[in-house]
Design a protein around this nucleic acid. Sequence first.
DNA 1: ATGTCC
Length: 396
Amino acid sequence: MGKSVQKISEHVSLIASKNTWIEGLAIQQLIKTSELNGMQRVAGMPDLHPGRGYPIGAAFFTTNKIYPALVGNDIGCGMSLWQTSAKVSKVNLDKLAKKFEHVELPLDDSWLAIIQSRKAAKNITVNGHDRTLGTIGGGNHFAEFQAIDEIYNQAALDELGLNKKHLQLLVHSGSRGLGQSILVDHIAKYNHDGLCESDLGFNDYMNKHDEAVRFAELNRELIAMRFLEAIRANGECSLDINHNLVSPKNIDGCDGWLHRKGATPSDKGYVVIPGSRGDYSYLVKPILAELNDDNSAMLENINTSLFSLAHGAGRKWQRGECHGRLGHKYKREDLYRTALGSRVVCGNKELLYDEAPQAYKKCETVISDMVDAGLIEVVAKLSPILTFKTNGDCSS
DNA sequence: ATGTCC
């Protein structure tokens, strides 16, 4: 179990076995970030990869101050899983792939009432970004129909109300332009110095941050609703977990702030760790310290992992270099089907290559690292059926 | 990541 937790320094750990490939630059960024003022502990997840200055796939625990730049621009980004009323056995891939022509446009006026009531219910008062509600965005964001492929813990699946016969819908998106504007405003005022709890801007950022988290949750809800509408099905949300956020947390008896950047919380119940569009995703049950207080080694792992897990398989290749690496071998048409037989809807050429399965690690290695570290139990394996990225501009 | 950078 200890083999998949690497101690990089006194307060920097990496949840990954020696065999799991992690880019050197990402480790450098992890160490650099650990040297920030007030930083108590840093934990890299097995999907750690380089970001813009700060790594992605990591959790950062500070006391007395927060670093909004560590959360990044996509405040509240996360994953939600919906069970649809549609049956897997009735899926016709050709027909299914054609049902999403309008899903990336702003929601039309027929959604106005539901948007207003859901905003009010979630205490979202910010205006000016409503046009992005219900839209997926770019990068690694997606909406993916999946089937439960293999079950390892039927009781857990029952607890979640999940049925193998039903088509599942996994949504990965965030707060779109809202989170971006909050970070840009913050950096313009405070640079990368972070904010002490006593600073005037602290509560202002945290209030805006918390609202952006709720906005991102609502965005995923509306994306799910419009995809369900597109296939004329009903659905129920099984889980919704944010992986980009900062929240108060007591760790090892110490009150502080836990920043998660591409790090899935392990203290919020069941989570889905998605593979690339050509790989399986895993529904997992985080193992809580309380359940293992008879096992000090496991407890220590849960603490050193900062109550966090990987948020995906992790990039192997940088964005932007994928077209060059794959272009000579794969034509554009080759990328609309995956090795698992699933389909891809993506109208943007660069995105099609950037998010190719080859650009990501095998999700199984990331999962087994966390199993070996005693952090999770795998509940079920989900296979992709149709991944929607964007209808996009087909000329690009 | 971004009503995206040229």
